[in-house]
Design a binder for these strands. Structure first.
Lengths: 342, 342
DNA sequence: GAAAATTGCGCAAACCTTTGCATGATTTAA
DNA sequence: TTAAATCATGCAAAGGTTTGCGCAATTTTC
């Protein structure tokens, strides 16, 4: 397998007895190049499978033709789906996608942003890590004029475009649904309140209760319930309560799964003794027994919208750009876990 | 928010009244630069948050410091985990990771490879699409001397490094386990046989039966059973058989889930009437009821090994490189779905 | 104390492309 | 027929780095 030296635009020029500028223009279908020359160049390029050097072109043009994406981790289903949405829009417009994972670590996030700052990307789509509490580390990016779009986990104070779902409404719908199905005492699994998404979900839970004339009982609002294990352990606690909730509106799905598994072991019936709604509509929700009702976030749309917003901004860099916020509507997928038989 | 023009190496040189070569060397800790100068340069660079232009450096050095990864889709848990393994090794060695998804389409795969060919990556780690039946489209890459490592879904005829698990052994272990648990008539959910992984899984199934003196019955080997829906539908068929299998060794998890859901509906008891083992150890396996026994593929190790192999090859480009194949050992995670009570 | 080695820095080429401007040839307009 | 417009191509700069080589100044060696 002999390694061929790569063909450059110069090789083509030399072989065809012309200049690199003509070759470059021919390849770009520049109108001032004769059809004959254009064909000749393209034919030669094809035959010697010429590929333009991305870096040289990018350097000269000042554009990398690449969108950066920064997410906590791609093996979370939600982010994988968002990424898919981004990829769909990006590849249609011939942008590459460069993915970085913060693994929910702020220091990694900071390094990654630094690393991306020059030449690699023309714009960034990001969802912040769970440790991130302000947007200082995004400033260098912004100062250098690299467009930024935040989605899902955002920094509200940062004056950039954002794509979010109406988390408050999502939780509100879930609670309303539980009430309509006869639940009288609805508890809540909350996430860290400094993150916009969890704050709004909790708010939606509270608003829904209030709007339906139900009281807010702090003792059945449980903080930091993001993992299956937490849900599992909490179920024991619920089991021992004198006046346990008959339903839980959770800010995520994993804690629900854990809680139901423990409920099963303890002989507590779901949904009749205690009903559940989750958040995110993880794939496992549908195959779990009982299937888990959950708020669908339309991650693919979220990715698509983010990419569109970013590309719009990238392609209008000269013009003064006003950041926009897109709020997507969630929907509630009702399954067995929230449907009391009584 | 004023957009600052970027700081370049030239700006630093001018400001410090020296030349770009000195600045460049100072930043790289070149031994021939005085400590004083080095400090001065670094201080200025820091203060003006200078970031080297990736493209210019890459162009000059002929290295992109980037590893390409080509997978069918990243929202499949297995690939997301592999990617994580790759990312761990890559980022430790300061490589970027550029991810492309073929969406299991051969034509997309071909285009993506073309697109990656120049300047974007120094090496590629790939798992082929389900449509891919030969490696012709990888040839241009190889001819240009870009190292390639294939993992999981590979092209055996291609003379490149590979990382796979012993799929045959995985299925063998599953069948052996079923036999030891009293299963007498074990069927098989197979995948497309032109893909190495499914071919070997089927082989392992057959070998295990033979080694235990059991006969091979083609009528309970079911082809193309990769999706939940397929499993769901097939359960009806099994239900109607005069002499149905009392166990299934499946080449993937989704069909198992589908089959069990339908079994539940039909009143067929799992595992007592029919036991199941899956393949891939998807996260849902653990929370499903009954929990699904499955072959664990150690995707993270697979990613790590692939990255190591690739980097080794990239960093020894001058030396004649002999492709290597790493075969990882799978393990069987035993859960309820395969443990008959009788 | 002279030759040799080392130190610290600068010059300029190279990596490959894109593109504003110039130029000579051909066609069009008047 | 001549000036003007158009066409097809070429020249050279620019984008930001890295690096081989050269050259003084300084230090080491014997």
């Amino acid at each position: 397998m002999s390694i061929r030296k790569r063909t450059t635009i110069q090789d083509i020029a030399k072989a065809l007895n012309t200049t690199i500028s003509t070759v470059s223009r021919a390849l770009q279908d520049h109108p001032r190049i004769s059809v004959a020359m254009r064909e000749k160049v393209k034919k030669y390029a094809e035959e010697h499978d010429y590929q333009p050097d991305f870096r040289a072109a990018s350097l000269r043009k000042g554009l990398a033709n690449t969108i950066g994406v920064l997410v906590p981790r791609i093996d979370i289903h939600f982010f994988a789906r968002v990424l898919r949405g981004i990829d769909e829009v990006a590849s249609e417009k011939n942008y590459n996608v460069l993915i970085s994972q913060s693994y929910d670590s702020l220091s990694k996030e900071i390094n990654l942003i630094k690393n991306l700052t020059y030449g690699k990307i023309d714009g960034l789509i990001a969802s912040i890590s769970i440790e991130t509490k302000n947007g200082n580390h995004f400033e260098p990016l912004l100062k250098k004029g690299i467009p930024l779009v935040l989605f899902d986990k955002i920094i509200e104070s940062l004056n950039v475009s954002k794509v979010i779902i109406d988390d408050r409404q999502g939780a509100y719908m879930a609670v309303k649904h539980l009430i309509e199905n006869g639940c009288k005492r609805i508890g809540h699994f909350a996430g860290p309140q400094y993150l916009n998404i969890y704050r709004y979900r909790t708010q939606g839970y509270i608003d829904a209760l209030k709007d339906h004339g139900m009281e807010i009982d702090e003792s059945i609002i449980f903080q930091n319930m993001l993992e299956q294990q937490k849900g599992y352990e909490l179920m024991d606690q619920l089991h021992k309560m004198e006046n346990p909730p008959d339903a839980i509106c959770s800010a995520n799905d994993f804690a629900v799964i854990g809680a139901i598994i423990r409920a099963r072991e303890l002989g507590i019936k779901v949904p009749d003794d205690i009903a559940f709604t989750g958040f995110a509509n993880e794939p496992m929700d549908a195959i779990f027994e009982p299937a888990v009702s959950s708020v669908e976030q339309s991650p693919i749309s979220m990715g698509q919208e983010s990419a569109r917003l970013l590309i719009e901004q990238m392609e209008n860099k000269n013009i003064e750009y006003k950041p926009r916020t897109i709020v997507l509507m969630p929907s509630l997928v009702v399954r067995k876990s929230s449907l009391k038989s009584g």
